[in-house]
Amino acid sequence: MSVFHNIKEWSNITIIIIGKILFFTILLLFIEFSFSKVVRFIGSKIVNFTNFVWDDVLYEHKVFDSFSHFFSWSIGYILIKPCFKNYYVIIFYLEKIFDILFVLISLQFLIRIINSIIRIATSENSHHTLAIRSFSQLLKIISIIFCILVIIAILTKNDLVSVLTSLGAITAIVILVFRDIILGFVSGVQMASTKMIKVGDWIGIKKYNIEGTVLEIDLSSAKIENFDKTITSIPTYDLVSTAVTNFEVMRQKNIRRIKRSILFNIQSFHFCNSEKLKKLKHIYLIKNYINKKQQEENVEYNMNLNGKRLTNIGLFRKYALEYLHKHPNISQTETLMVRHLEPTPYGLPVELYCFAKTSESINYEEIQANVFDHLLTAAKEFNLEVSQVFAKKELKW
């Protein structure tokens, strides 16, 4: 009879406890719902009333919702003892659960604040964005690790110092695991302080044979959009430790270098006689140059090699230089020259070194193509032959 009585008593206690827990849960959800509605309403009014950008960002990232969680769960924590009076075990475990929830809510609030700061910072396309992004991601990682340690301390009934002391033995392992993150953070701060690279820059990295626009620089990796629309991800610290070419200054000046050569057959080089010079005088760009040279010394009667006889390759080089000086799409304020490179077994390269007045790829290629179309065709007027080197194919029988 006593056993039956005990079972009935435990059943009643269990039903009462379950009822209290259901009532407490419903009450907590009602408080949470009410506070979230009130806080969102107040937050929307503040956002609509002010002209600031930061409050809009905070509202979008639900920072105000985290405030409502603090209020509602604080009221729930206060109601634990009145609702579960004399049930000390349940009170103990519920307080533990609420302590952990407060830690998680604090973590959520901090992460939302960090995301809002990143959003505000990235709207300003500056080098400081990189440092803020790297620092914020590092702060997120540290916050998560700290919250995990606090939860462990709550569950094990130890203080935080004791937990940190017990984890000191695995510090080397932690450093090894987060090696890339630490290097990425240091690299991000270095790039921001020296203004080397920022999001949106046009860069090239020979090590990886990539060239494109920087889309994102995070704590551990950087994303680069190549010109073929593919995405390449590289470690962030490679942007500091590897040779990186930054074309952003060129794009800001709206110029782009042309550095290409034409290979001429040396067998086609010769001195120009009076008849040839008379014919070339009809070319406006070198007419004055030929007259000046003829005044310095009478080329007609100076037929020996010791004289200052003009050559077809020399006249062409002068013509190409004057052509670039007169070209409307070639910058006259930057380096501009036409020079001979070292002779090769295939001929003599004549290189054009100048800058087009654009950094946009399509316009640049159009200008470069027009320049070489003209000069390759004009070379025929000087009786110059452009070398055409063909690879010999080995015949296999």
Rank of each mutant, 00 (worst) to 15 (best):
A169L: 07
A169W: 06
I170S: 11
T171M: 08
T171L: 14
A172N: 06
A172S: 12
A172M: 09
I173K: 09
V174Q: 07
V174P: 01
I175M: 12
L176E: 02
L176H: 02
V177M: 06
V177K: 09
V177A: 11
F178Y: 12
F178E: 03
F178R: 05
R179E: 12
R179T: 08
R179N: 14
D180T: 12
I181S: 15
I181A: 15
I182A: 13
I182H: 04
L183R: 15
L183I: 05
G184Y: 13
G184M: 02
F185A: 09
V186P: 02
V186E: 01
V186R: 08
V186T: 06
S187Y: 05
S187H: 04
S187D: 01
G188R: 12
G188Y: 15
V189K: 02
Q190N: 08
Q190A: 10
M191Y: 11
M191N: 04
M191I: 07
M191A: 02
M191D: 04
A192K: 08
A192V: 02
A192G: 11
A192N: 05
S193F: 06
T194A: 02
T194G: 00
K195T: 03
K195L: 05
M196W: 01
M196I: 00
M196A: 03
M196F: 04
I197W: 14
K198P: 00
K198L: 00
K198N: 00
V199A: 06
V199G: 02
V199C: 01
G200C: 01
D201H: 07
W202C: 10
W202E: 10
I203K: 08
G204N: 04
G204M: 03
G204C: 02
G204P: 01
G204Q: 11
I205Y: 12
K206Y: 09
K206C: 02
K206G: 06
K207H: 13
Y208F: 15
Y208M: 04
N209Y: 05
I210T: 08
I210H: 09
E211K: 14
G212W: 09
G212L: 09
G212C: 13
T213E: 05
T213S: 02
T213N: 09
V214M: 10
V214A: 07
L215Y: 00
I217P: 03
D218T: 14
D218S: 15
S220V: 11
S221N: 15
S221Q: 11
S221D: 10
S221A: 11
S221C: 03
A222I: 01
A222K: 03
A222F: 07
A222M: 04
K223D: 01
K223T: 00
K223S: 08
E225N: 12
N226Q: 15
